Amino acid sequence: MSQSAVDLPLPDADETGPYALMGTARAKPGEADALETHLLSLVAPTRLETGALAYHVHRDRNDPDLFAFYEVWSSREALAAHLKQPYIAAFLADRTRYLEGDLQIRWLRMASRYPTRL
């Protein structure tokens, strides 16, 4: 993840939906299971955070070394607070142990209406 990836983009002036992102992570050879274990350990505590609307980790069916994640937050500020959580900071500091390359993140603008009830 480059420095620009952690600089959360500002929402557009007319944006009313939640703050979302998706990303991918490719495991180093032989590290996919360890990466999956680590990524899955982040799910439960993250979902308990204030402002977490959705947090999902996926493993590619055809390429088991490739993981995708999708996050939806009530606001940019909620995501910024998430990134400061000790378990997230620890993962980000240790990620090169597991990753080939770095996290690839796309910052999303919600085009559809986000449901008020799930």
Results as ranks from 00 to 15, higher is better:
residue 32 A to S: 14
residue 11 P to D: 08
residue 44 A to Q: 06
residue 40 L to W: 02
residue 45 P to E: 13
residue 109 R to F: 00
residue 36 E to H: 06
residue 6 V to I: 08
residue 101 G to N: 06
residue 40 L to N: 12
residue 3 Q to W: 11
residue 111 A to L: 12
residue 75 S to L: 03
residue 60 D to V: 04
residue 15 E to I: 00
residue 59 R to P: 04
residue 1 M to C: 11
residue 24 T to N: 03
residue 31 E to W: 02
residue 76 R to I: 02
residue 101 G to I: 13
residue 10 L to Y: 10
residue 91 F to Y: 14
residue 96 T to V: 06
residue 87 Y to D: 08
residue 82 H to G: 04
residue 93 A to S: 14
residue 37 T to G: 11
residue 38 H to S: 10
residue 13 A to L: 13
residue 99 L to H: 10
residue 84 K to H: 12
residue 80 A to N: 11
residue 33 D to P: 00
residue 30 G to K: 09
residue 102 D to W: 04
residue 118 L to K: 05
residue 84 K to D: 07
residue 41 S to P: 00
residue 57 V to I: 14
residue 46 T to R: 09
residue 5 A to W: 01
residue 25 A to G: 08
residue 93 A to Y: 02
residue 53 L to R: 12
residue 51 G to K: 01
residue 32 A to H: 10
residue 99 L to K: 01
residue 7 D to N: 12
residue 49 E to T: 00
residue 18 P to K: 06
residue 96 T to K: 12
residue 73 W to F: 01
residue 31 E to R: 15
residue 112 S to I: 07
residue 84 K to E: 15
residue 76 R to F: 03
residue 109 R to S: 02
residue 118 L to G: 12
residue 1 M to V: 07
residue 13 A to R: 14
residue 17 G to M: 01
residue 82 H to Q: 06
residue 102 D to Q: 14
residue 49 E to I: 02
residue 117 R to E: 13
residue 94 D to L: 11
residue 93 A to I: 02
residue 38 H to R: 15
residue 7 D to I: 11
residue 109 R to C: 01
residue 50 T to G: 03
residue 97 R to Q: 13
residue 11 P to V: 05
residue 105 I to F: 02
residue 89 A to S: 08
residue 4 S to A: 14
residue 83 L to M: 15
residue 97 R to N: 13
residue 41 S to E: 13
residue 60 D to N: 14
residue 34 A to K: 05
residue 70 Y to E: 11
